[in-house]
């Protein structure tokens, strides 16, 4: 673990977490312009996020811890991928973790967690969310 790798890992996490909504906003903006609309602007997903985060969170009755920890787990699994995959630098902070199979499996694990959370609600909608994955 080198200093460069550590700095690169932190930078990658910041760039990807901060940039992912911007990428989504950029894609929507391009699409809006192609369709002849003004579009909401590139930072709209970030505005949406700020609004969503300030709202109260609602937990469906009859769900367990699986439902509650699923979002945290999914984001964490993706965050690990964001840190170890070579994006800003190839000097990975965790060279022993970075491997294509591990990255694919980590992303699949994130999907599994969401699917289990969907099943945990015990409604057909949760299962359908699973199927949409």
């Amino acid at each position: 673990m080198t200093g460069l790798g550590l700095a690169g890992g932190v930078l990658q996490a910041i760039v990807i977490v901060g940039g992912a909504p911007l990428l989504l906003g950029l894609m929507r903006q391009v699409r809006a312009r192609l369709e002849g609309r003004a579009g909401p602007g590139i930072v709209q997903p970030w505005r949406d996020l700020r609004k969503q985060l300030s709202k109260e969170s609602i937990t469906p009755r009859g769900t367990s811890e699986v439902f509650r920890i699923a979002p945290v787990l999914t984001v964490s699994l993706t965050l690990v991928v964001a840190v170890v995959a070579p994006f800003v630098t190839v000097a990975s902070p965790l060279p022993a973790v970075a491997d294509l199979f591990v990255v694919v499996a980590l992303l699949a694990h994130g999907t599994v967690v969401i699917a289990l959370a969907g099943l945990d609600t015990g409604t057909a909608f949760g299962g359908m969310a699973r199927a949409a994955r």
């Binding site: 985060l53 469906p60 009755r61 015990g122 909608f125």
Partner: peptide
Amino acid sequence: TARRVRTARPW
């Protein structure tokens, strides 16, 4: 996030 958590009936 906001600390408020509400338990509700699933949709």
